[in-house]
Design a protein around this nucleic acid. Structure first.
Length: 444
RNA sequence: GUGGAAGUAGUUCAAUGGUAGAGCACCAGAUUGUGGUUCUGGCUGUUGCGGGUUCGAGCCCCGUCUUCCACCCCA
């Protein structure tokens, strides 16, 4: 038997580049965050949907192709169909809308939390397989819908326990109006990409690239003056007025942004939002407001939550016009950032709230009854399964970050009491009632 | 996909081309109706993988994989 085992070839237990295993220390906080977000989205009346991992390649790539840009995983399936793995949740959602619009009530508000795949070169916070948390509103092209998405972004970060973040907001439509006013609208895609690099390569580099792109120094400077906020503390509405006049007194988009900002102010959350005209978003389907989210202490990680308004995304698949606005949280990037920040969101992850220690093997049945009682109170309770020394049991509890231990023997059983120990402070609550123990655990 | 840097025990790091080591962690034992100290013993490595040069390679050379960084793009 043993000889046979040693002879057998061992397959190297490797995983693909950019793909990862999740150990409990990461999967527990990830699951906890997902659960909180799902509950939170539901509070706003959003409903969950799901779509297939695989789609026809033509469905995901749209008309323009651009396969190399999207770095999509695609292949022929066993029936020779040209298939691809979804690289985001928005494009499959557009397909979903076109297919099911008769079965949906609009405005349709959905959320979708699942994995997506991109064949990019991985880096820290950038993976080939990662989870997106999308939430979108379709069928409402107004400031109220735009605001609701922004408000949900803000409250979602609060719910996740993330504190140091900033939302950078801009308006693609307003920027396009400005470019038209300048007479360079045919170069807009290229200009957007250059502008997007401002924070990374600096003003001088961007200026040089813009000059090259537009052909004149004046236009490059005009664009720079539009995107470059000299005064970072300039009030939102002042910046907006400035952009509006630069765009030739544009009215429609300015009014929309004003209305959105009004709602943010009324809700008292406007401080989290900055009007940053250098935010453009590379994706060309955006038509209105766009936004990115940066963690104050780790701006180089990139955006952890981005999105915007797209008023004709579904037009690839249907003649019906379905205006949408939405946002997507990059959960894996966010978790990587929180890990680097040694955030309590990750470090506090525990497998359970209470462990029932085994002092006396003959009391197993009673331990089980205690466990059932605590579980019925919604307390995650782990009954230690082995008959080991206390030291080993405490080590197990510590490794799993379990805050409380119940250490009970025949004394407690005959008295109808329990002894609860705070495993961190090592404080003992001896001979207390089960109800007292429950309230102590719940208080924490 | 292109360019650059790095890969040694679970982890942090050593080792002039000459027997691969240390701390922490881990496991076992002693003591204990209760683990942070102490003591004793122990384990962990095909030096990422595959070739080459050499009497001899963790070290030099080539390839490959992975990670990290930049480009690109983005969550």
């Amino acid at each position: 038997m043993r000889v046979e085992r040693e002879k057998r070839t061992i397959i190297e237990p490797k995983v693909l580049k950019g793909f990862r295993d999740f150990l409990p220390s990461m999967e527990i906080p990830k699951k906890a965050i997902v659960n909180k977000l799902e509950e939170h989205f539901s509070l706003y009346g959003f409903v969950p949907i799901d779509t297939p991992v695989l789609e026809y390649t033509e469905v995901l790539l749209g008309k323009g192709g651009g396969e190399t840009d999207k770095q999509i995983f695609h292949f022929l399936d066993n029936g020779e169909r040209d298939v691809a793995m979804r690289f985001d949740l928005t494009v499959p959602f557009a397909r979903f809308l076109a297919l099911h619009q008769n079965e949906l009530a609009f405005p349709f508000k959905r959320f979708h939390i699942n994995k997506v795949w991109r064949g990019e070169n991985p880096q820290k916070g950038r993976y080939r397989e990662f989870t997106q948390c999308d939430f979108d509103i379709v069928g409402a092209d107004n400031a109220e819908a735009d605001y609701e998405i922004l408000a949900m972004m803000e409250s979602s970060f609060q719910v996740m326990g993330v504190t140091d973040f900033k939302f950078s907001v801009a308006h693609r439509g307003l920027f396009n109006a400005f470019l038209t006013h300048l007479g360079v609208e045919e170069k807009s895609t290229e200009i957007l990409r250059i502008v997007d690099k401002l924070k990374k390569i600096g003003t001088d580099e961007v200026s040089a690239l813009l000059k090259e792109c537009t052909g004149t120094k004046e236009k490059a400077e005009d664009i720079l003056s539009y995107i470059n906020v000299e005064n970072p503390d300039e009030p939102f509405l002042t910046t907006l007025e400035r952009l509006s006049s630069l765009a030739g007194g544009e009215i429609e988009h300015t009014a929309r942004m004003k209305a959105i900002y009004g709602y943010l102010s009324d809700a008292g959350i406007e401080d989290h939002f900055t009007l940053d005209p250098s935010i453009t978003r590379g994706l060309d389907y955006y038509t209105g407001i766009v936004y990115e989210t940066f963690l104050t202490e780790l701006p180089h990680f990139g955006s952890v939550c981005s999105g915007g308004r797209y008023n004709d995304l579904a037009s690839l698949y249907t003649k019906e016009q379905l205006p949408g606005v939405g946002s997507s949280i990059g959960l894996d990037r966010l978790l990587a950032a929180l890990e680097e920040l040694e955030s309590p969101v990750i470090q506090r992850a525990s497998s359970s709230d209470l462990i029932i220690l085994c002092l006396d093997e003959s009391l197993r049945s009673w331990y089980d009854q205690l466990a059932r009682r605590f579980r019925s109170e919604g307390i995650r309770t782990d009954a230690y399964l082995l008959n080991k020394k206390m030291g080993a049991q405490f080590k197990y509890a510590e490794a799993n970050h379990i805050p409380y231990g119940l250490s009970c023997g025949t004394l407690e059983k005959s008295a109808g009491k329990v002894t609860l120990k705070n495993l961190k402070t090592r404080e003992m609550h001896q001979m207390i009632s089960i109800e007292e123990a429950i309230s102590i655990i719940k208080r924490n």
